[in-house]
Amino acid sequence: MKPLTLLEHVGCLKTQMGACFVGSRAVFRGHDLHAELKDMEWVELFVFGITGRRFSAAQLRMMQALWTYTSYPDARIWNNRVAALAGTARSTGNLGIAAALAISEATIYGRGIDIRAIEFFIRAKKQVEDGGNLTEIVASELKQKRSIAGYGRPIAAADERIKPIMALARSLGLADGDYVRLAFSIEEILSAGRWRQSMNCGGLAAALAADFGLSPQEYYLFSFPAFLAGMPPCYIEAQQKEEGSLFPLTCAHIRYEGVAKRRWKTAED
């Protein structure tokens, strides 16, 4: 069976990523955080931490805007609702918002879509470069997975974020990247066909990230704070209002559809 390789790792962290030398300095991916990196914007440091690479000012501006444009302080939205419920239940803001971010890693929106969307774009572009036909690639993906991440939307047809994202991308000279053009070509195919789906913000954001050179995992980690700015307002308002007053439900709001009332019998041998 396997050798005991874990013994090599006991007691000591060997790392390329960084260290805190308490009382003297902190190293972040090889660089002194308070000297070499001290002028970095937070988003720049965050993306540098994920990728180890530097990005242009225009790209960083766009990345930050992707988070700005997806932060809605609407406490009905499932992830935000968690932050707000923490407020109404008088839990801590940190717990509520951390849980809301964890909830944002969903299958039909958020991180689950993000990673699938960028992975498909990268794969589709390669297939097209290898001589594939985009319509056939899209049809095959739909046949296999029944949906294409980044197209269609669970609760609405159109996505109000596309217009402002594209306006900013154009002003920054980032609107004509290979992946953004591919994303719109896929939208044309999907809207013309029987599928009738348009691109959503998740699709466009993933295409921009792919144009910036992010890998699926890098983009997945980058997207983590995407909804964050909308969450504290939901927590704050719920916490300021009367406790328990957010989305109260009476007993009659439970619609029971299960087994009829019955008597319990203790299980015997």
Partner: peptide, 9 residues
């Protein structure tokens, strides 16, 4: 735990 930093400019 101890640390061995392998990348330090």
């Amino acid at each position: 735990f101890a640390i061995e930093l392998q990348h330090d400019n």
